[in-house]
Amino acid sequence: MRRLLLTAAAATAAALTLTACGTTEPAADDAKKPTERITLTDASGTKVELDGPAKKVVGTEWNVVESLVSLGVDPVGVADVKGYKTWDTAVPLKNDPKDIGTRGEPSMDTVAQLAPDLIVATSDLPPAAVKQLRKIAPVLEVRPADASDPIGQMTKNLDLIARATGTTEKSAQLKRQFQAKLDEGRKALAAAGLAGANYAFADGYVVSNQVSIRPYTSGSLIGAVNEKLGLKNAWTVKGDESYGLAATDVEGLTKLGADVQFAYIGSDGDKNSTPFAGVLAKDKVWTSLPFVKKGDVHRLPDGIWMFGGPESMGKYVDSAVAALTK
C-alpha cells in the first residue's frame, strides 16, 4: 500500500441507488419513457456510452472512490479497501464494497464478477490494465492530478463522474461548499494576522531506517488550496507535472526559513508514515531547525486524503486553519 501511496496511484468505484419521490406511482407515460443514454468523453479521448446513470460502479483509485461517495454513490468495488479506510476517513465508505485488489493492479476476475455498469479509473493505471477493463464494462478514465491547475482538475473529475452517475446537482453543491470553506478559511487566517504566512506542507516515510520527505509544492492540490487560503508556499523545490510533489531529506528542511509554519499528515495505521513524530524526534538536524524549536510544527488529523476531492480538501482547510490559529 505504501508503495502506491508514494506514486499517488489509487482506485475506487461506486453504485448509485435511485429512488422515486412522492407517494404516488409514476404516470403510465413516464413509466414507458426510455432511459436517456449518456455519452461522455474521458481523459484518454475515449467516447464512453452508458444506457443511463451508472448504478453499479467500480473505482480503481481512492480519489475517484471519494468522489463517488461524496456524490452519494456507494461503489460495489474498490481497490485496496483497507488502505482507503486507513487513509481516507474524512469521506468514509458507507457500504461494504468488494476489494478488487491493489490500485495499480486490479483483479480482472473480481471486477468481472461484480458485473458493473461503469468502471472509473485514472490514467495512473497501466494502459494494458485499462484495455482489459474495457472488455468488462465501460471505463471512464480521468486524469488524477494536474500541477498546472490542481483544483480545476479535481472539480473537472468530480463533474465528469457526476454526469456518468446522474448526480450533477450534488456535484454543484459540493463545489459551492468547498468554495465557502476556502472563503471562511482565508478570512480566519487574515483575522489571525496570518495572511501571506510562510507555510510548508509535507508527508514523510521511513524505508530501511532512512527518512524521505515529500514536499507539496504550489502545483500540488494541497499547495493550491493553501494559496487560496492566502498562505505562501515556502518550498523552493520543483514538483512533478501531475501531483506537484517533490522529494527531499531532513537536510533539505534547513532551506526553509526560520519563520515557516510546517504541517504534515501521517497515519497511525501506517507506522512508516509518521517520521516527524517518530524517528526524527532524536535526529539532531530535525531538532535544531528553528521552526521545530519554536513549536511551529503541526500534525494535522489522520484520514484526510491529500489527493482527494472537495470534501477531503474542505476538512483539510478546517484542520489547517485550526492548527495555525490555536
Rank of each mutant, 00 (worst) to 15 (best):
residue 214 R to S: 04
residue 269 G to D: 05
residue 192 A to Q: 06
residue 225 V to S: 05
residue 230 G to M: 09
residue 268 D to K: 15
residue 213 I to M: 04
residue 238 K to N: 00
residue 274 T to Y: 04
residue 195 A to I: 10
residue 250 V to N: 06
residue 267 S to C: 05
residue 239 G to Q: 05
residue 224 A to D: 00
residue 273 S to T: 06
residue 188 A to T: 12
residue 234 A to M: 01
residue 201 F to E: 02
residue 228 K to W: 00
residue 249 D to L: 05
residue 188 A to Q: 15
residue 253 L to M: 08
residue 269 G to I: 02
residue 242 S to L: 15
residue 218 S to N: 02
residue 198 N to P: 09
residue 212 S to T: 12
residue 219 G to Q: 04
residue 231 L to F: 04
residue 199 Y to H: 09
residue 193 G to Q: 05
residue 264 Y to K: 03
residue 253 L to G: 02
residue 273 S to A: 13
residue 234 A to W: 00
residue 253 L to H: 03
residue 241 E to T: 13
residue 197 A to N: 10
residue 189 L to V: 09
residue 220 S to N: 10
residue 264 Y to S: 13
residue 225 V to Y: 06
residue 190 A to K: 15
residue 211 V to T: 15
residue 250 V to E: 11
residue 257 G to D: 07
residue 213 I to G: 01
residue 195 A to G: 13
residue 220 S to I: 07
residue 199 Y to W: 10
residue 227 E to M: 14
residue 240 D to R: 13
residue 227 E to D: 03
residue 197 A to L: 07
residue 240 D to G: 09
residue 191 A to Y: 08
residue 274 T to N: 14
residue 260 V to P: 00
residue 247 A to V: 09
residue 213 I to N: 05
residue 260 V to E: 01
residue 273 S to D: 03
residue 204 G to V: 04
residue 191 A to P: 11
residue 233 N to Q: 06
residue 204 G to N: 10
residue 232 K to P: 05
residue 264 Y to N: 10
residue 256 L to P: 00
residue 188 A to G: 08
residue 190 A to D: 15
residue 264 Y to G: 04
residue 274 T to K: 09
residue 195 A to S: 15
residue 273 S to N: 03
residue 239 G to R: 09
residue 266 G to Q: 03
residue 220 S to G: 10
residue 271 K to T: 14
residue 245 L to S: 11
residue 223 G to D: 02
residue 229 L to G: 07
residue 240 D to C: 08
residue 218 S to H: 05
residue 200 A to W: 00
residue 256 L to W: 04
residue 224 A to S: 08
residue 261 Q to R: 14
residue 269 G to S: 06
